[in-house]
């Protein structure tokens, strides 16, 4: 699985940080930051949850 984010779309709601805290963070501007671009195992489910809950479609995952 590979995570790509579009921080031009990010609206800083923090849903990704809440749902997959080890994989996402917010930078000083509150924008999405990927901590682990290639998660696997149980993390994958948390990433899919984060993708679904992101209000702005800023997270894209491929290869899962």
């Amino acid at each position: 699985m590979r995570i790509d984010v579009n921080d031009g779309r990010c609206v800083g709601a923090g849903q990704c940080v809440l749902n997959a805290p080890g994989l996402f963070d917010q930078d000083d501007q509150g924008m999405v930051k990927v901590l682990d671009q290639h998660p696997s195992g149980p993390d994958a489910a948390a990433v899919l949850q984060a993708v679904d809950m992101c209000p702005s479609g800023a997270i894209r995952v491929t290869g899962f």
Partner: peptide, 13 residues
């Protein structure tokens, strides 16, 4: 407006 306010309400803040 939203961008100016986002850091004030981030998970960390």
């Amino acid at each position: 407006f939203r961008k100016a306010l986002i850091p004030e309400f981030s998970v960390r803040r």
